[in-house]
Simulated scan of single mutants.
Amino acid sequence: MRQIMLDTETTGLDPSRGHRVVELACVEMVNRTLTGRHLHLYLNPDRDSDPEALAIHGLTTEFLSEHPRFEDVAHQLVDYVKDAEVIIHNAAFDTKFLNAELNRIGLPAFDTLCAKVTDSLLHARELHPGKRNSLDALCERYGISNAHRTLHGALLDSELLADVWIAMTRGQDALLMDFEDEGGMDSNGVRIERFDASVLKVLWANPEEIRQHEDYLAGLDKASGGPCLWRAAAA
C-alpha cells in the first residue's frame, strides 16, 4: 500500500484571485513505513505573496524567482502521485490550488491523477469532535515534537503529517485480530494474517524476581496505608 502525505504553501488564500502555489512537498509511505523518497519543489508564482502568507511561509519573491514554474515540473507531481492514496490535512484547500494550477496548463483535476484523496483533518474531527485539530494541536495530542517548526514549510509539514497519521490510525497495527478465517484486511486494504498466540514463549519469574516484586508491593502497601490494588485483587 502506497500513501503520499502532501502539503502546499501558497501566495494567498484564493486561486480565483490569482494566487498560486509556491511550495509543494510529498512524503511517501509504503505499508505505513516512510521510504525516504520525497518530492519537494519550490515554484515561481510570477507574483508576490500576500503579507499574511509571507509571514506564514517566509518564501520571498526574490527567492522564488530562481525556481521553476509549475508547468515546468507538473509532470513530476503527476508521476509521483500515480496509483497512490494522497493524504492531505484540510484537503479542500490544497486540492483547490492544485486543480487551478493543473487546469491552467490543460491537465485534469488532481483527484483523477491518484487513486484516492483522504482528508486527515476530517479524520481527526471524527476522532476528536469539538477539539482543536490543527496539525500543531495533533502533534501536541500525540506527543510528536514540532519544536523546530517556526515557519510553515511544506516538506516539514508533510513529515509531521506522516507521524500524526500513523499515530491517529495506529489501531490498524494491532497484532491480536479476531478473524473468522486465516486472515483479514484492515481499513487500508493491507492483509493481516491470523495471529497464533500459542507460539509465544512463556517466561516465568525466577525466585529473585518474585522476591523483588513482593518488596515493591510491600512498599506500595506502606505508602498507601493499606493493601495496594494488586494485593486487594488477589485477595
Rank of each mutant, 00 (worst) to 15 (best):
Arg125His: 13
Gly226Gln: 10
Glu209Val: 09
Ala234Ser: 09
Ala232Glu: 11
Leu107Pro: 04
Pro207Tyr: 06
His152Gly: 04
Thr112Arg: 15
His75Cys: 08
Phe93Ser: 11
Leu176Glu: 10
Arg170Gln: 12
Leu160His: 03
Ala100His: 07
His57Lys: 05
Ile144Pro: 01
Leu59Arg: 00
Gly130Arg: 05
Tyr142Ser: 02
Tyr142Arg: 08
Gly143Asn: 09
Val190Ala: 00
Lys131Cys: 11
Ser49Pro: 02
His40Gln: 13
His123Ala: 15
Val78Ser: 09
Arg132Lys: 14
Val30Glu: 01
Asp94Ile: 10
Ile192Leu: 08
Asp221Thr: 07
Ile144Ala: 11
Glu71Asp: 15
Gly225Arg: 12
Glu85Phe: 03
Cys114Phe: 06
Met168Ala: 07
Ala109Ser: 09
Gly12Pro: 01
Val86Asn: 05
Leu24Ile: 06
Ala115Ile: 03
Met185Ser: 03
Ser224Trp: 06
Asp94Val: 12
Ser187Asn: 08
Val190Phe: 00
Glu208Leu: 14
Leu107Lys: 13
Met185Asn: 00
Tyr80Cys: 00
Asp111Ile: 06
Gly183Pro: 03
His123Leu: 15
Thr60Arg: 07
Asp157Pro: 10
Thr35Ser: 01
Lys201Trp: 01
Glu208Gln: 13
Leu220Cys: 13
Leu59Glu: 04
Ala205Tyr: 07
Asn133Gln: 09
Asp136Ser: 15
Pro68Asp: 10
Asp173Lys: 04
Ala174Trp: 02
Met177Phe: 00
Ala234Arg: 14
Ala235Leu: 15
Pro227Leu: 15
Leu64Ala: 03
Leu175Trp: 04
Leu24Trp: 03
Gly225Gln: 13
Gly106Phe: 06
Thr61Phe: 00
Leu138Gly: 04
Glu193Met: 02
Gly184Pro: 04
Asp186Asn: 14
Trp165Arg: 00
Gly143Cys: 11
Ala223Asn: 07
Phe97Ala: 06
Ala162Leu: 03
Thr8Arg: 09
Lys82Gly: 00
Ala100Ile: 05
Ala234Asp: 07
